[in-house]
Design a protein around this nucleic acid. Structure first.
Length: 286
DNA sequence: AGCCAGGCCCATT
DNA sequence: AATGGGCATGGC
């Protein structure tokens, strides 16, 4: 992608063909975003950015422009991906509707814990738990709190974790942070591992099942040959084919169809279905 | 009020 | 390998 300019503490995205602030935030890949008087604030790890659109360009004001250039995946060409997905006959309306989505490169530990929290939970509540976790154990960065380190969570007593309102996930958060802090899980390993191998490692962690592992692989390690099957994907699939299939069957089926673009296909589909549902519109095209 | 949420763990078959 | 019950909490 050529359409952006990087300067000190400011990235200007001049080509908004594949950069839509709202869609990037609302497609379910991150939780620490909020509107602050007209600008979107995103916190990632210890970093912070403000985004807004003005005169046909997007401004990204941030504490580390190189970090956010990578974070927003700015070097990747999404128009090629969209074209290929249409070739693989992903429902065209979903791709067009989601144009502007980008898959972020988020930090592994934050993604790991966030998606453990996400299981069988709703987005509003997930965001609340993550904010309380950060306020409780993260560093005060002056105006916001960083996402806590594995060591910080591991060293906290269980009652602190349990007081965040995460329910039965408190144990998963604590134990998985300990596994990382004690070196039983290497957060960097998946970067250089093949997807299935990396996934086997992730599945050893308490609170990480098939779907959560796929989300981590996609949103932190940018492994696109995964297809996270959540309740929305299930709804689309089962509605379209008119019968109830298990998550495993759905995942295998969609992986076979979209191959190494599965992760992108999943994001477009997820965003499309959830937005339709939010507006009480039926639709189960695939 | 009751169903559901970006499911996982664990026991059973 | 596949299936099913139980699960904390709170949003809508």
């Amino acid at each position: 992608m050529k359409g952006y300019i990087v300067k000190k503490n400011l990235i200007t995205v001049t080509d908004m063909t594949d950069f839509d602030i709202k869609k990037i935030c609302e497609c379910g890949q991150l939780f620490r975003f909020t509107d602050i008087n007209g600008k979107t604030r995103i916190i990632s790890g210890e970093h912070r950015a403000f985004l807004w659109q003005e005169n046909g360009v997007v401004f990204i004001e941030c504490d580390d422009e190189k970090y956010f250039e990578k974070y927003f995946d700015l070097q990747r060409n999404y128009d090629i991906i969209r074209l290929k997905l249409k070739d693989k006959s992903l429902f065209e309306a979903a791709v067009d509707f989601g144009q502007g989505i980008r898959i972020l490169n988020q930090q592994p530990f934050e993604t790991l814990i966030s998606f453990i929290i996400s299981a069988n939970n709703n987005i509003t509540r997930i965001k609340g738990i993550i904010e309380r976790l950060s306020a409780s154990l993260g560093d005060d960065m002056g105006g916001y709190f960083s996402f806590p380190s594995p060591q910080k969570i591991a060293a906290a007593d269980f009652e602190t974790i349990n007081g965040l309102g995460a329910g039965y996930r408190a144990r998963y958060i604590h134990e998985t942070a300990r596994a990382v802090a004690e070196g039983r899980f290497d957060l960097d390993a998946p970067f250089s591992a093949k997807t299935d191998c990396a996934k086997r490692g992730l599945l050893q962690l308490l609170g990480v099942g098939d779907k959560v592992a796929d989300c981590i692989l996609l949103f932190a390690y940018h492994k696109a040959d995964v297809f996270p099957v959540d309740t929305w994907i299930k709804k689309v699939y089962n509605c379209y084919y008119g019968r109830e299939q298990s998550r495993a069957v759905i995942r295998r089926s969609l992986l076979a169809r979209f191959g190494d673009l599965s992760g992108y296909a999943q994001q477009y589909l997820f965003y499309y279905k959830r937005e339709l549902d939010n507006h009480r519109i039926d639709g189960c095209n695939l």
